[in-house]
């Protein structure tokens, strides 16, 4: 039974890491195709990718959209969570439902709806429109995470601050936000990783300036190439760094 467990765990790790391992290994392929046999190590593809202006622009765009949209989503989500956790309004449950609802709707449908809205109102597609879409998908996430983290402890400290004469904005800035530093950071980093990786909304809602996943998508159309592996490996490296930073900085400290 014990042996079986470890075997299962090992098999799961192999399955989970197989595509990533293949991706990374063949990004060093000294040849034209990222499939076996492995012909030796070269950094040529990384050099090519890093000197590719279009890719690097797309990377910059992705980071910009991710950071800006996550910041907006975090602020809106935090304020709403603060309000809903504090006051029992007649329609509280409904409000929560509305704010969470986008979580249960496919990104494709959100993108299609926005595309239709922007076309009809004559808004030109750009990084901004993609960013609006990303706020829509990340707002429920930020709201849910911060709302779940607000407890009695939090509420009592806020009440004490108000009792001592702090105006509401100071309560938010000096008490609520610092007390929720860990969940706020978690929500922000999660939003960033989701946004900078998101494809369908960015694909449908951008036109000339595109984000990295969209650029990679167009690379895929020209067939398999170790260059795509190299980009993928770099993206993986960045995401994993973000996750590990989050783990080390946020979760370690709260324990």
């Amino acid at each position: 039974m014990r042996l079986l467990s470890w075997a299962y765990l090992a098999a799961a790790y192999v399955f989970v890491f197989l595509p990533v391992a293949v991706l990374v290994v063949f990004s060093f392929q000294d040849g034209r195709l990222p499939v076996p046999p492995f012909r030796g190590v070269t950094f040529e593809w990384y050099a090519k990718v890093l000197s590719d202006g279009k890719l690097m622009t797309a990377l910059g765009n992705s980071l910009l959209v991710a950071v800006v949209s996550s910041t907006v989503a975090l602020i809106l989500g935090f304020l709403a969570a603060h309000a809903l956790a504090r006051v029992r309004l007649p329609g509280s449950a409904l409000m929560r439902g509305v704010l969470i609802a986008p979580l249960t709707v496919s990104y494709l449908i959100i993108a299609l709806g926005l595309l239709n809205l922007f076309t009809q109102t004559g808004v030109r597609l750009s990084l901004w429109t993609a960013g609006i879409g990303h706020v829509v998908i990340n707002l429920p996430l930020c709201f849910a995470i911060t709302y779940a983290a607000m407890g009695d402890h939090q509420r009592n400290a806020e009440r004490a601050a108000r009792d001592l004469g702090a105006p509401e904005w100071k309560v938010l800035l000096l008490i609520s936000a610092p007390m929720l530093a860990a969940p706020l950071a978690a929500a922000f980093f999660l939003s960033v990783t989701f946004s900078w990786d998101e494809f369908i909304i960015a694909f449908l809602l951008t036109r000339f300036d595109v984000t990295l996943p969209v650029e990679i998508w167009s690379m895929l159309r020209s067939g398999l190439s170790p260059a795509t592996n190299a980009v993928g490996s770099l993206v993986f490296l960045v995401s994993v760094t973000l996750v590990i930073l989050l783990e080390l900085l946020v979760f370690r400290r709260t324990k």
Partner: peptide, 25 residues
Amino acid sequence: AVLPFWTSYVVRSYSWPLVLGQNGV
């Protein structure tokens, strides 16, 4: 166990043909 969860969705999908294809791993 969930680390590859954080790789780009597009890239992760792309890497499966490398594993499963005719000439794949």
